[in-house]
Each structure stands twice: as C-alpha cells, then as structure tokens.
Design a protein around this nucleic acid. Structure first.
Lengths: 250, 250
DNA sequence: CAGCTCATGTGAACGACCTTTACATGAGCC
DNA sequence: GGCTCATGTAAAGGTCGTTCACATGAGCTG
C-alpha cells in the first residue's frame, strides 16, 4: 500500500489522502464478514476514520461502491480464470477442469468479491463498466469452450461453444452458490464441492463425446485443426464401459 | 382467501383477525417486487394496515418472517417437484427432465419464494423446520436420481445417486440463478433458460451412459430391477454418433 | 351478563442507517 | 500571499428495526 504521505496512525490531517481506496478495502472486509446485505456505508466510513458523509465525495451512493467492488472482482476473476486456463496446456480437458476448480477457488477464497458479483442483488447492467468486466470474465470460459468444442469427435455435430460455456458457468456457479460458500457450506455433503464439480464436469464432457481419461497426450502443442485429443474416434469413451469419474478415490 | 369475518375494506376493529397470514402475503409481494434485501418489515405492516410494532406479536423479528416464507416455499417446491416427477412416468429420463423444467418454472413463477429460499442469505440451519422442509424438497430430486441410477447400464459402475442428485440440483440452481430470474434474466442468451437446462441435463445423462433419445419405451410400468430402458446395452448412445440435444430446433 | 385474562394492536422512543445541505479546511497553483 | 476547488465535517430529515408501556376487546368463567 503506498499512501501519499507517511500515514502511520492517528496522525492524518483534515484530508485522508486515500479515502476511495480505503473505503473499498473496508467494504471488502465488511462484506466478507457479514455479506453484501449486512455491509453498511456508515461502517466503512467509520473504519476509514472519516465522517459518514465523506464517502459521498467518492461514490454516488452505497450501490456505486458495491458495483465498484463487483467490477474489481470480475477483473480479478478474469485474471484467475485466464491463469487457470493457461491457454489449454497441457491438454484442453485438463485445463478446462482447472478452470472449473479456479472458479470454485475464487468463490471460496474471495467471498466478498463473489458475493458482490453474484449475490448482492445489484442489476447486471447497473454500470456499463461492470457489465463489460463481467463479460470479459465470461469470455475466458467461452474461449476455452470454443477450443474444447473444436476438439469434439469429428463424426459428431459440434456442440455450440456458447452453450457449453453457459453450461459450465451454471455448473460452477450452482456448486459454488449451493455448497461452497458461507452459510451454504454448512450443508453436509458426501464429497467436497471441488470433487463434486470435477465429477460433474467430467460426466458432462463425456456426454459430449470427449475422452475424459486424462493425459491422452504428453506434451504436443495441440495444433488447432484436428489435435491428437480428438483422435480417439467415435465420441465414446474408450474401453467400452467407462470408468466413472467418481468412486475411485483420488 | 378466507378471512374470519367480512373484511371488505377499511372496516376492521382493533384486532386484525388474520395478521400473520396477511403479513406473509404482503411480504411475499414485496419480496417479489424488490427482492428479499429490499423487503422491509415496516412496509409489510403498512400494507397490512397495522402499526410497525404489530408484526412483532407474530414473528420474533424480520428474519423469522423471512424464514417462514422460505419454509413455505420449500413445501410448495417439494409438491411441485413431486408432481413433475410423477413417480417416473412415462419413463425415468423423461420424468427426470420434467423435474428439471419444474425447477426452473418454480424459480420463474415464484420469484419471491425462490429468493427467500436461496438468495436471501439466511442460514440454512436457522430453523429446524426450515431445514427439514428443505431436505424434504431435495429428497424428491434424490429419490428420482436413485431411480435413475438404478437404470444405469449394467456393465458400468453405478453412479452414486446422491452425487447425481447434487449435480442436478447445482445445474438447475445455476441456470435459475444466473439466467432465469429478476435482474439476472437480463443477460442475453442464445437460448431460453429452459432449453439451456434441458440440453445440459441431456448431455449429463448421456455422459452417465443413459440413452437420451427419448421414448425408448411406450407404457410399461418399468419394474425396479432392470427395466427396459437400461436394455440398450453398452452405456453408449445408440447409433454411433449421437445426435446432439442441441441444434435441431424444437 | 359481569368480570377477568390474555392475545393482539398502538404510540412513543431509541439507535442505526442513508442521504442531502451548508459550511470548513487545506493542497496546489498563480 | 491569495484563490480555488476537491475533500472533509456537522447537522438534519427520513426510514428501519426493535422495545416498552399501555390500550383494546375476544372469549372464557362463573
């Protein structure tokens, strides 16, 4: 944190110097504790050591602060998804699952952001910048789905990538929202949310005809046209009866 | 609505006669309009024509009203899912998809209930009765999954029914929450939420080895052990390359 | 029917919050 | 030094949630 001046403790003149950022941080902490609903503008001001009216110099109202946080959240979300995707290395399916886990990890590790982004009830189109950030994040999933779709068994009608992306998103959000966060995490499960999502994804991908036995290839750069992954043929998991993505303890 | 006495309009003595129910109805309407977050205890009282303190005679606090609504919601939810499942008629897969659509329909047609149940942020275990109602509703999905699991291709390891149920739940909730309700419905999609979920479910089921071409049987009562559905063999969609559950315009 | 009792509703009050308005301060610039 | 404007403050109005003392009247008891 680089404050403009030394900002040790109580010594701080009439002007704060970094209120906007301080408010965002304070709000983030509060939301993480008590949820977007419980977070209060006045509390954030108090935590930043200013009067209750001060925040209005930086945000039109409470909602604007919230949507700023949501926007920032989508940006971080995008970058984490992008990192997880790693341009499809080492192979598309593996990378795809990594994206799924990254989704859950984000929901778990950044509850405040996730809350602001998806559970605060603020309209998706509240803010153009917010909507754009949200779309950029989704586009990571979408681009990954695009690559995956291109690998679909060739003698099969290609699944629309957009649809796949929406499916993946809904699975990840469903698991995160129902089982992986805050109060919802208290639902007792026979398996962890990560395992649950991983199995769900694998079954789904198998339903599309993708081989999901992992590591079908070693290190090839996977050229766009008809990469090795898709070469297993009939759109059917190899080996007749597939071994389920469940059961066999990892 | 059956009031105890004629309750035409302004004529109403010191005692309301049906406040508890009136408050629940008012809250339901308010939540449908403005979300659980926006709903206010005072508003409900006003709408029922009583003072702001009156509700406290019937609900410990605002949260208790909310959880009453959520509980009632789970009960209606359960009954709608049960009706949709219709004990697996005419065939398990068809009935299963009908449950999925019923899930979405409930989310769409009863936004207030759905909001209170899943998006109000009230802890799942706030109330024992609430938790029980929630579990009863989930058990409908679970029981259906149980039946479905029993139909899994015999030469395949059976998927755990519990896991399937959780998967289905997460898909349905994910789609409902992201695309099918309130503000979220404003996200533009290439297809309707219902179609999206239906395709997702079909792909998932196919991933488990279920034949998803529909109407594999006509009217048989489908005896528990190894019903006709499961007889198609190898856990692979018949016909080599499967026709996708997308595309072909319905 | 008189009278009692207790569930149910009222009004006033408290503290917290959101938000606006008029005013104060001081940082940066001429 | 003096101006100006962004940034902060204090005060005030409106709404909420919640509590408390008090009012009302429905239904029982005799």
């Amino acid at each position: 944190m680089s404050w403009r001046k030394e900002q040790g403790r109580a010594e701080r003149g009439y002007h704060h110097g970094n209120l906007k950022e301080a408010l965002l941080q304070a709000a983030l902490g509060l939301i993480a504790e008590k949820g977007a609903a419980g977070f209060t503008f006045a509390d954030a001001a108090r935590m930043a050591g200013v009067s209750a009216a001060a925040p209005y110099r930086h945000f039109r109202d409470r909602d604007e602060l919230l949507s700023s946080i949501a926007q920032r959240g989508f940006e971080q979300f995008e970058s984490r998804l992008t990192a997880a995707w790693d341009d499809g290395r080492p192979d598309t399916v593996t990378a795809f699952e990594r994206v799924g886990r990254a989704y859950l990890a984000f929901a778990r590790e950044e509850p405040a952001f996730y809350n602001a982004m998806f559970e605060s009830g603020l309209p998706v189109d509240a803010n153009a910048a917010l909507q754009a950030a949200s779309e950029r994040a989704f586009n990571v999933i979408r681009a990954a789905a695009e690559r995956l779709a291109a690998l679909a068994p060739p003698d099969t009608p290609r699944p629309p990538a957009m649809m796949m992306a929406l499916h993946i998103w809904s699975m990840a959000h469903g698991v995160a929202s129902l089982f992986s966060r805050g109060d919802a995490a208290r639902r007792k499960l026979p398996m962890s949310p990560d395992e649950l999502l991983e199995a769900e994804l694998l079954i789904y991908l198998r339903g599309l005809g993708f081989p999901t036995d992992r590591r079908p290839q070693a290190k090839s750069a996977e050229p766009p046209p008809v990469p090795p992954e898709a070469s297993s043929g009939s759109g059917v998991p190899p080996g007749g009866a597939p071994a389920g993505p469940w059961g066999k303890p990892k």
